[in-house]
Amino acid sequence: MTLSDQHRLTQLEWLESESIHIIREVVAEFEKPVLLFSGGKDSVVMLHLAAKAFWPSPVPFPVLHVDTGHNFPEVLAYRDATVERLGLRLEVAYVQDYIDDGRLRERSDGTRNQLQTQPLLDAISDLKFDAVFGGGRRDEEKARAKERVFSLRDEFGQWDPRNQRPELWNLYNGRHRPGEHVRVFPLSNWTELDVWQYIGAEDIPLPELYYAHQREVFERDGMLLGIGEFSQPRDGEVIEKRQVRYRTVGDMSCTGAVPSDAITVQDVIAEVAATRVTERGATRADDRASEAAMEDRKKEGYF
C-alpha cells in the first residue's frame, strides 16, 4: 500500500499495521505458533500479513488446515499452490480419519463444520502448538464480538467468556501454563468490507469461487448449494444453473453461494458495501441452528 500524504493513516493502513504488530508479538513471545489456513479469504489475508510482517525473512511458522473432507476442489488447489509459493510447511488434520476409526460420528444432516473441533484440538496438543492464529473477526457474530485478540484456552481447549483477561493498550499478554494455549486473532478489528478493500488494494489472489461464475446449484433452507461430491440434491430439490459467488468457504455441504454479478474485486467491494445480509446469515447453515450456535462451539474449542 502506498502511504497517505498526511501524517495520518487510512483505515486500511491502520488495520494492516495493527495486525502486523500482533503477528510479530506472537512470534517473539511464543515457542511454537501455527496459522490456521483453509484457503478462505480471511486466512488468505492473515497469511499475506504474516508474509509482510517478517519480510525479507520467510514466514517463521507452519500452517494448519482442518480438512472436513467436504472441500471445494479449487480451494484445495489454491491452498497447495499458496503453501508452495511461500515455502511453508502444511499440517493437515483430517476429519475423515476420525470418522473412519469411530472417534467421531457423521451427523444426521451430513455436515461437518461442527466436527472440526476435536481434530483441531488434537493437532494443537500433538504438535505442541502454543499459539494458534485464527482469521476470526469481531464483526462476524456476537460471540466473536467479545473475543480478545489474545484469547486463552484451557487444557481442554475451552474458551471461558466469563473469565477473559482484560486487554489493555497494545500490551498483549500471552503468558499461559503448560497444556494451555492461546488463540490469536490478528483480524479482530477488520470488517468484511475492510478485508475486501484490502484484497483489492494489495492485489491478493483468491480462489476463483469468490467471484461470480456459472454453477449448478439447488436451493435448501433458503440457501443455494453447489453440486459436488458431498452435496447432492434431495427429492424435490431442483438443479439449476445460476450465476453465483461464495462469500465464505467451508464445508461444501452447508456453505451456500449467493446470486452475484461481481466478476472483479471492485465489483465485490461494491456488492459487499451495498449488501443487506451478514455473510454468515447468507451462507452458513450451521450458524443458523440457534441464537447461540457460535458461542457454544467456541466454548468447546472451535475456531
Binding site: 483505515q11 464483526d139 456476537k142 460471540a143 467479545k146 467468556p161 466469563r162 477473559q164 470488517t191 447461540a292
Partner: peptide, 28 residues
C-alpha cells in the same frame, strides 16, 4: 444483546466490540 452465558447471569459482564462506518470514517 450479549452472550447466553451473560443472559443467564442477567448482566453484561464484558466489553463487546462493534463496527460501523460513514463515508468519512470507520469506527471501532
Amino acid at each position: 444483546d450479549g452472550l447466553r452465558s451473560e443472559r443467564e447471569q442477567g448482566i453484561t459482564i464484558d466489553v463487546a466490540y462493534r463496527y460501523f462506518a460513514t463515508a468519512e470514517r470507520s469506527f471501532i
